[in-house]
Nucleic acid binder design. Structure first.
Length: 355
DNA sequence: AGCGCATGTTACC
DNA sequence: TGGTAACCCTGCGC
């Protein structure tokens, strides 16, 4: 694959000023914060069409004084939406750094101007906010299906590359092909990678090969290592995310189940029925955690957001609003602001619920 | 393994 | 306002 030129659709230094104005609150994060989801509401002003096409990724900037969002779509666009300061313009800035479906966005928590995007086009790019350009950080002959930063080293990026491999790279390296390690962990593409907040050695992967796995990084000596735990579904696994405390793992599968793994060694497994299958025009559902271990939030085909209780292992509540006129697929819970939830739909619209 | 089909949303008549 | 083409590379079943 050849390097495609990057272009900026909106040339506006306001984005730079916006991002530079955010105070990075080092070391602070809201784990185990109980939120009354029934009190969450959707204000009309918190709805925007950020990008054309289908949203595949939405991420809050990890700072408590901002609701800036980075959004990716299926056409290679990365957009930014300042959900608070949207008076003069819409607070929306759109770029076109890639030529395919954006599979992941990661923002450095202590250096907010470093925004990484990954794409099916095989490239990983690093946004330089000052230059308003996306530099090339990594290039592969295979699609990049997922990215995640390691918890204990923010410069270490793990990537789901091609059909079952995970690689690790140092984003500070100037070399484009600096994948220092690579392991073959699955039979098919890896849709999500996640790290445990409590034990930074634990990594979870979910794959099209019908499994989700927990890996111990200290035991990845071989090209084909053994997993600490494997959850087997009857269909592709769209996501596997550790709970805020790190004690639970939630998996979302096309087999219409949400898997829940608990226990000291992640040895207790249960399945909660939830209709997860979406058509190819809709991004797959991924059950995400809220601000503590009590709920998993996942889209439903009736254009609502199902809140599933992990204790009762059943539906607790559904966030719904008549403004949501398409199926909500991809979400992000604000890492610093409990109760602030971004949801996006196949139609390119983004909604921010708050408390 | 390799096809054909269903699927939801938008944009444009 | 209703009808339809185009989008798109997912999962499943033959």
């Amino acid at each position: 694959m050849s390097d495609s030129s990057t272009s900026c659709l909106v040339d506006d230094k306001k984005l730079l000023r916006n991002i530079m104005a955010i105070k990075s609150n080092e070391g602070c994060c809201t784990v185990n914060h109980c939120v009354d989801v029934k009190a969450m509401k959707l204000d009309e002003r918190n709805i925007a069409r950020v990008l054309p096409g289908r949203i595949t990724e939405v991420k809050f900037f990890p700072a408590g004084d901002t609701r800036m969002l980075a959004v990716g779509n299926n056409c290679g666009n990365v957009g930014f939406w300042n959900n608070i300061d949207s008076d003069e313009d819409n607070g929306i800035y759109v770029y076109h750094p890639h030529s395919g479906l954006i599979s992941g966005i990661s923002i450095h928590p202590y250096s907010l101007s470093k925004v990484i995007s990954s794409c099916y086009d095989g490239y990983i790019r690093l946004l330089d906010v000052e230059k308003e350009s996306f530099g090339l950080a990594y290039s592969s002959e295979y699609p990049i299906f997922s990215i995640c930063r390691a918890n204990d080293n923010m410069n270490s990026l793990f990537i789901g590359e091609g059909y079952g491999s995970v690689g690790s790279l140092d984003i500070r390296s100037s070399s484009v092909n600096n994948s220092s390690m690579s392991w073959s962990l699955h039979q098919e593409q890896i849709y999500t990678i996640d790290f445990n907040s409590q034990n930074t050695n634990l990594m979870a992967t979910s794959s099209k090969d019908d499994t989700a796995c927990i890996w111990d990084l200290r035991k990845l000596h071989h090209l084909h290592p053994q997993s600490l735990k494997t959850v087997t579904h009857k269909g592709p696994v769209n996501s596997a995310y550790f709970s805020p405390s790190g004690n639970l793992l939630a998996t979302t599968s096309e087999d219409d189940n949400i898997g829940l793994v608990s226990g000291t060694n992640y040895d207790v497994e249960s399945m909660i029925y939830h209709s997860n299958y979406t058509s190819r025009f809709i991004s797959s559902f991924r059950g995400i955690w809220g601000w503590d271990d009590s709920y998993i939030m996942v889209g439903n085909k009736k254009k609502g957001v199902d809140i599933i209780s992990t204790e009762k292992k059943q539906l607790y509540y559904t966030l719904a609003n008549r403004e949501i006129n398409a199926i909500p697929c991809r979400f992000d819970a604000h890492p610093m602001l409990p109760g602030v939830l971004a949801i996006s739909t196949a139609g390119g619209r983004v909604f921010v619920w708050d408390i």
